[in-house]
Design a protein around this nucleic acid. Structure first.
Lengths: 211, 211
DNA sequence: CCTACCGATCGGTAGG
DNA sequence: CCTACCGATCGGTAGG
């Protein structure tokens, strides 16, 4: 029975959305529980009743982003055909995932700066597994001569992850050196295209590139 | 006449260093004037006497990093010979500048997240000028067929700036997918090398690359 | 989910 | 450069 007034789950969802938005925009330390309560439209003690602690709210927000990412990743890893399509799918879908809501990227970058050790642990558990898959693919490509032999697979993937997430998180600022229309606060096509080009060109040999 | 006890300029310097370190590590909102005063070894009102306002301190710290960067850049742009050496010098010196003190990179990334419009203005005034120089070089390389024709010069430079600064700022976290010894909290050689490789391989045609 | 309230800390001032 | 102090806001609790 759908409620026309905010149900219990609805309030929790609204809290999570408001907190994600505010933490991404102003940072965890720069956002007060009062700010979150105001955006949700409840009093501060009512918010505390739902989230227990400010730090618990932070963990819920962070887990929400990582869980969503891990939900979409294995799917596209399987869906794509073996080979070049698979690589393209992983990179461009990851790019699409973060570009669709830059707050996701900003949240991760902020956490990496504010709590490096905790973020390192989360990366180890949430990201390392599928990095191994991509690296397997890269090594096969190297054996077949389609991928540069001097690529360091793990280090390359680390650079691309950084390129994607940080690029989406800060494109407002970095983008000013190459002006482009950015529809609705999303990363402009011009920069998305060049980012993908850099990632691909530095991996595939020119001969195999346009195949 | 050099003073053995903290002179006036010495205190200001120590305040600037302490604030740079703390703002980079914990963020502006996450650092109190009390934190800075403690690190310098003076009382909070004494700190306020020197810096007037917390926001004024932030601006001084930010300007300090950007001024230092702008001090070193034009020098190496002139020093390097025309052509490939010049490109290499600009990228690897910029990389060296930030890798030498990752706090510089972290400060800039934090500002980009916390105050995007202000940071965009600073980039326009401090970075755009020499971006134009690098783009001129890229376009000449494209005419001579040494650089890929489908490179978007300004967008490419934006990606490399992002790659360098964000890479240095968050290598603790991103680096866990490719373990490497990091001497004294600085970015490991393995990642520096791959970062440079990605930047160069995605720019120069393979034939001209090893020349 | 609310009102009322807590001690601690915030950036900053007065006055010397 | 200090002591003493300010109003505002912080995260969180009591009690309903």
């Amino acid at each position: 029975m759908p409620a026309t007034r905010p149900s219990a789950a609805d309030v929790s969802d609204r809290i999570l959305h408001a907190a994600t938005r505010l933490f991404a925009a102003r940072g965890f330390e720069g956002t007060s529980l009062q700010d979150v309560a105001d955006e949700v439209g409840i009093r501060k003690p009512s918010l505390v009743y739902h989230v227990s602690t400010k730090d618990a709210l932070r963990l819920r927000v962070l887990e929400g982003v990582l869980a969503h990412w891990n939900e979409v990743l294995p799917e596209l890893l399987k869906a794509a055909a073996t080979g070049k399509d698979q690589f393209d799918a992983v990179v461009s879908e990851t790019l699409r995932f973060f570009a669709a809501d830059p707050d996701r990227a900003r949240l991760l970058v902020r956490e990496a700066l504010d709590r490096p050790e905790e973020m390192a642990r989360l990366i180890r558990s949430h990201v390392t597994p599928w990095v191994a898959i991509v690296c397997d693919y890269i090594r096969k490509g190297q054996e077949k001569g389609r991928i540069y032999a001097h690529v360091d697979p793990e280090a390359y993937v680390a650079q691309v992850i950084n390129l994607v997430i940080s690029g989406v998180a800060t494109f407002h600022c970095i983008g000013v050196v190459a002006p482009a229309p950015s529809p609705e606060g999303r990363m402009p096509q011009r920069h998305l295209a060049e980012l993908l080009r850099v990632a691909k060109t530095s991996l595939f040999l020119p001969g195999a590139e346009e195949e």
